[in-house]
């Protein structure tokens, strides 16, 4: 198990390196420096700022300097927010995004799994068809359509929640549902498919022959196997949650990392962009590792490679 994790982390190093390198050189290849947009800056000050941020060194030197600092956990200063480090900004906004992501995942799992189980157990009935039709709609409707729509309906017309913002505890509801809806739908479909596969297995017949009740069969014998497709979906889902958070945090004006990233990208805040991408990449790698471990825990036939 320890070896497995270590192995995975070692494999992640080249991936991380490629991501950082691609991002770094893409950013550096951009026409115009980070300070070129500021109008009233004199040539002299521009030189000074470039000097200060090390932008006059050859690109490869800058890259290795950046790598060296990044390895020590130092992502540098923001170009746009004076005196603030990227680390500070991530530390400040990431918990917000994490809360949003965790709540939407909770919503997705809490709605998706029961809906999928219902669909499988009551296969080809009214319940199955209605659950799966709703799920299909949830999948086809993109976040940036759902978000404004439910904020229009539940925020503006019905007045149950604030249209946007991140102040009261009720403010988490609409964004979490918006972000989680597509995943709830996807999980429902995956759960239904997985459960149908499992419910047709011989060992379910064995469990029935033992005298188990239908609920014990579903929850004790079938669910573990039926959830395997859902678990392997969790890796990509987490990566998707990140890009979903860009949209949802923009729609609902939530001060999370996603919105910071979009703003940094729009304002060419290079260090912030680089740092965020690196941070996201590490998050995705950790998430995938957790998913891999979870899969082995759920499925005894898999061994840690």
């Amino acid at each position: 198990m320890f070896k497995f994790i270590l192995n995975r982390l070692l494999q992640a190093i080249p991936v991380l390196f490629i991501i950082v390198a691609m991002t770094f050189f893409m950013v550096r290849a951009a026409p115009g420096g980070p300070f070129s947009q500021e109008r009233k800056v004199s040539q002299q000050i521009l030189e000074k700022m470039n000097e200060h941020y090390g932008l006059n060194d050859p690109v490869y030197v800058q890259f290795f300097n950046y790598l060296k600092h990044a390895l020590q956990g130092d992502l540098g200063y923001s170009y746009k927010h004076e005196g603030r480090t990227v680390n500070e900004m991530i530390a400040e906004s990431f918990p917000v995004s994490l809360k949003l992501g965790a709540l939407s995942l909770l919503f997705a799992v809490g709605v998706g799994i029961p809906a999928g189980v219902l669909g499988a157990v009551k296969k080809n009935t009214f319940w199955d068809y209605s659950a799966m039709s709703v799920a299909l709609m949830g999948i086809c409707l993109p976040t940036f359509v759902v978000g404004p729509l439910i904020s229009l309906i539940f925020g503006l017309w019905l007045g149950w929640f604030n249209v946007s913002g991140w102040f009261e505890s009720g403010d988490v509801v609409l964004p979490s549902i918006t972000l989680g809806l597509a995943y709830a739908a996807y999980i429902a479909r995956l759960t239904r498919g997985g459960m149908l596969d499992v419910l047709n297995q011989d060992y379910i017949r064995t469990a029935r022959a033992k005298g188990l009740s239908p609920s014990a069969i579903v929850w004790k014998h079938a669910l573990k196997g039926g959830l395997l497709p859902v678990v392997s979906f969790m890796g990509p889902a987490l990566a998707g949650l990140i890009s979903g958070s860009f949209v949802v945090e923009t729609i609902f004006q939530i001060p999370g990392l996603g919105r910071h990233f979009v703003n940094a990208a729009l304002s060419r805040d290079y260090t912030m962009v680089l740092g965020t991408v690196l941070f996201y990449a590490v998050m995705i790698i950790i998430a995938n590792l957790v998913v891999d471990i979870l899969q082995v825990v759920l499925n005894p036939r898999l061994k840690y490679e």
Binding site: Q201, Y203, R205, T206, K210, G211, L212, G225, N299, P300
Partner: peptide, 19 residues
């Protein structure tokens, strides 16, 4: 079932729950 009348099946590879 399983108390008064029990059953064993053809394929032992698939009749036990692998999980």
């Amino acid at each position: 079932r399983g108390k008064r009348v029990s059953m064993i099946f053809q394929d032992p590879m698939t009749s036990l729950n692998p999980f």
